[in-house]
Amino acid sequence: MARLAPASSPLTLLVILLLARFAYSFATPDIPLNWTTLASCAVDNPERIIAGDITTQTADNTPASCIESCAAQGFGYAGVEFGNECHCGTGLNDALQKAPDSDCNVACAGDSTLACGGSWRIQVYTIFALRPGSWAYQGCIADTPDTPALTDSSAQAPFATNLDLINQCLQACSRLGFTFAGVENAGTCQCSNGGLATDSQKMDEAECNSLCPLPGDAGFEFCGGVERMAVFKFTG
């Protein structure tokens, strides 16, 4: 006569539940160097979500060590994935698709109490200025062939996406040592050391009405307008 398999005991079920909870219970990581979290867990792909992705695998990988490594190389975006992967880059290739935090379930190679992403799941971090100091908004400035907004401006190569464009532009100008940066019509970034042109014209803020998407579900930001540049100055 066949015997029925015994039902799981309450103690066994309790152990299973505790193990499952522990598997996803990680400490909150320290975020150094005034960086901030863009996504506590996001979807990555073979083409990589971080623009210009440089990936290294390290035995001491944590969010903090990855951020410090990316910052030391002049990158403004960092991500940890699959335990030992540190990703550095210059921006984002696409909008971040948020994943459940429980998907980032692989412990960091350098600290098993912390999560470092998962399988095609990445934790993403950035900083809003690469040098000590801050950028101050100068206003919505007319930028036409006859009345340029900036003197001695240097246009940046197009970014992979205009996602988080202001941050991408400030980082690019900062890396190159410029003290002025401007975004225009949700797609152009210019850098300058000469600053505002002597005959520059400040326009009504409503004319800087072109929208750029922000990461995750943060919505949009204003990124200049048609022949209108949102200008920022590095204050040191």
Rank of each mutant, 00 (worst) to 15 (best):
A42I: 07
A42Y: 02
F26C: 04
A20L: 13
T36I: 11
D60S: 15
A7W: 01
I49T: 15
L17F: 10
S8W: 05
L18S: 14
A23T: 07
W35P: 01
T12R: 15
I49W: 01
S8C: 07
T37N: 09
A20R: 12
I16S: 11
T36S: 11
S40V: 14
W35G: 00
S25T: 09
S8L: 12
Y24D: 12
R48L: 00
I31Y: 08
L11K: 08
V43M: 11
G52A: 00
W35D: 01
L33Q: 13
L19M: 15
I54T: 12
P10W: 12
T12A: 15
I31F: 04
A5I: 08
L17E: 10
F22N: 08
T37L: 07
V15C: 10
L11G: 08
D44V: 05
P46E: 13
T55M: 09
F22W: 06
G52W: 00
L14P: 01
S40D: 15
N45R: 06
S8H: 07
S8K: 11
R48K: 06
L38S: 07
L14S: 15
S8M: 10
Y24Q: 12
A27L: 09
P10V: 04
A39M: 08
Q57T: 15
P6R: 14
T56R: 06
C41F: 04
D30E: 12
V43D: 07
P46K: 13
E47F: 14
S9E: 11
D44Q: 10
P29K: 03
T28Y: 02
T58P: 00
L14W: 05
